[in-house]
Amino acid sequence: MEISAAGRLEVRITPADVGKRVSVRSLIEHPVPVEKFTDTVGVLTSWDNGVLLITRRGGERVRIAESALVAGKVVPAAPARRRGPSASYEELARVAARAWPPVESERLGHWELRAASGFTRRANSVLPLGEPDLPLDEALDAVRRWYGARGLPAYVQTATGAEGTQELLGAALEERGWVREVTAELWVGPLAPVADVAGPEEPPEVVLSREAGEDWLARYRRKGVGEAALRVLHGGPSVWFATVPGPSGPAAIGRCVVDGRWAGFAAVEVDPALRRRGLGTAVMAALARRALDEGASAAWLQVETDNAAARALYAGTGFTAHHAYHHYREPDSTGGPAGDETS
């Protein structure tokens, strides 16, 4: 907190600081007549009608009455992580988009409208990496028309814990009635430890292929994969599919896309009857070794916040969270993609 020369806490932020990262201390209500404070750090998303809206790193939005402020100041961006490669949000967003490409896309200024017949939100949502070439409300109307013409609900992907105006866009969408449906995280880590991680005492056979064959698709959790889905799965700069053969179908599968220094992992799935035997680790290690051979040095993956098993696996191989991302669905719309496609 900011302390004056006289030793008093001071509020040194104003509505002009919207969009900046701030740290504030505020009074909270307490059942006994004792002052109690809480500290909040995040992006100052808005300051309207005497209320501050602060978006924390994980996406949580905190509303604070201006009258409850005790102290506040602008603070530097979050410090660099001790582990994992350094990368900007925009770099990772573009790499992730290339690894999961839509069937068709169209530009709207610095927004990319993406569609793939409804196969996953990531391939059927707007990726905003800057401003559209229209005022926001007109841009959103254009987005709804574009997706409506394809029989799809409109989705916009935003992020928290990233530099730029992502948090501001998320708040603007919420003000207009857009509904946040999914929150997931993008994690990064060095690639070599993934290749070297210890697997089962008797390592299983891992078969690598350039195509997702019938056996791979039989283990993939999305059934009835159609032509559009196959185009997404096979899209990307250098795509590899891993399969661990089993007695009654694949025991485990995985997918990796190599793109320059980056290797992106997805669809790491294990037969429920064979879990906790290191098969998922073995799949990732085999894919990582192939990615190293192609010159990659850093790794990324996407995981939903409630997938505890996957998060434990990835944390054990050196991954850490980089930022969270969200999908906002247009107002007055139901249905749409069955879910986000994460690792």
Rank of each mutant, 00 (worst) to 15 (best):
P79C: 04
R81Y: 10
R82D: 13
R82Y: 05
R83H: 09
G84D: 12
S86R: 08
E91I: 11
E91Y: 06
E91G: 03
A93G: 04
R94L: 14
V95Y: 11
V95K: 02
A97Q: 11
A97V: 03
P101C: 03
P102L: 04
E104G: 01
E106I: 03
R107Q: 11
L108M: 02
L113Y: 00
L113F: 05
R114M: 07
G118M: 11
F119I: 09
R121V: 12
N124K: 08
S125P: 01
S125N: 06
S125E: 10
L127C: 03
E131R: 13
E131T: 07
E131M: 13
P132H: 01
P135I: 07
L136K: 04
D137Y: 01
L140N: 01
D141N: 08
R144P: 15
R145G: 10
Y147I: 00
A149T: 03
G151I: 14
L152C: 08
L152T: 04
Q157M: 13
Q157I: 09
T165L: 08
T165I: 02
Q166G: 02
Q166K: 04
E167H: 05
E167Y: 01
L168T: 00
L169K: 06
G170F: 00
A172E: 15
E175V: 00
W178I: 12
V179L: 14
V179I: 07
E181G: 10
T183Y: 08
E185R: 11
W187H: 11
L191P: 05
P193I: 00
A195S: 11
P203L: 04
P204W: 01
P204V: 13
V206H: 13
L208F: 10
L208T: 13
R210S: 11
G213P: 06
G213D: 15
